[in-house]
Design a protein around this nucleic acid. Structure first.
Lengths: 179, 179
DNA sequence: AGATTATGAATGAAGG
DNA sequence: CCTTCATTCATAATCT
């Protein structure tokens, strides 16, 4: 999984039914960006697809696409990738390096044997050619994908990405090929 | 469909994080790390000795040492310091901003523990910067992590720290010098 | 028991 | 890139 934990969707006080067209996560105080689940999903999938450091152009486009799901700015996308990447690495460096040492004495644990799944941070680092997250019900034919430029150290593969059927929106076609 | 009104998806059966990864079985309630008294004591003493932001190396060593008292991971140490520092600052700030007259508590009184905490905050905090935490090499490169002087409420005091005398464990010498 | 507090964990934003 | 800070969420601990 992308993150260490199963993810808990955090939300501000449940705003009444989707009144927010693009009011982002919280309806009240917009101190900082609070990504919606759809936004997180898209970003995560992009990341897992291999995108690590999107260019300014890409950021713009991603942001633009994600703005459909709620308020978002380019810098949010930028920060998201930075943080995600950094924490992925940090997890490995700081947390994974943790030794499997196990001396329990003081505790009252009944010596439950546990298997630490430390490999959860091992990143497959695979790059999908065509990412299909949502089995596309609609038949949005992907337009001719633009040629992806390879950046310095990024994998930029053309991704066919579609989102639809998740929200009540008019079949947003979010192919990653727009990148 | 239930709106984004976040519901917390129960954590997947354990993740690298938490603490008790397993207890075997499936539906194990993956709780969070619950430090033992000794662990808290050591951490607190370290903090009070001036350690505020341990480096990765230090974190790992602390974690390693504390693992004697129970299960612990590096990330726990990391978060502990992170939280402790943040909350100390937070309390301090709140204390300064808070009501100038700390006597009129007409409503419900804060718990004794809370008051104790406040009292603790009010006492002079001593942050060492000469704590020899990095005596590993003869020519130790001084880390440049001495920029925490943003707020001028740091005092310098020479201090030698030794925990070993307070422990009731075999021969674990937990002097901070191990850092 | 439910309400409240304490605190582990997470993450958006920056700083450097 | 890396580290750090602020804020928040979730939950164990505790109180009433």
């Amino acid at each position: 999984m992308d993150e260490v934990s199963g993810f808990c969707i955090k939300q501000r006080s449940g705003y009444g039914g989707g009144n927010n067209g693009g009011s982002g996560g919280t309806g009240t105080k917009c101190g900082r960006w609070n990504p919606t689940t759809e936004q997180v999903k898209v970003l995560t999938d992009l990341f897992r697809s291999g995108l690590r450091t999107p260019s300014t152009d890409q950021i713009q486009k991603i942001s633009s696409q994600l703005s459909f799901y709620g308020k978002i700015e380019s810098k949010n996308v930028f920060y998201w990738f930075q943080n995600h990447k950094a924490r992925e690495r940090q997890k490995r460096r700081r947390f994974l390096v943790d030794e499997p040492n196990e001396f329990h004495h003081q505790g009252k644990l009944p010596s439950t044997k546990y298997l630490a799944e430390l490999n959860q941070v091992s990143e497959p680092e695979i790059v999908l050619e065509t990412l299909q997250l949502f089995p596309l019900n609609s038949f949005t034919e992907p337009m001719e994908s633009e040629k992806c430029r390879l950046f310095s150290n990024d994998y930029c593969k053309e991704n066919s990405y579609n989102i639809g059927t998740q929200m009540d929106h008019p079949t947003l076609d979010l192919r990653l090929s727009f990148l």
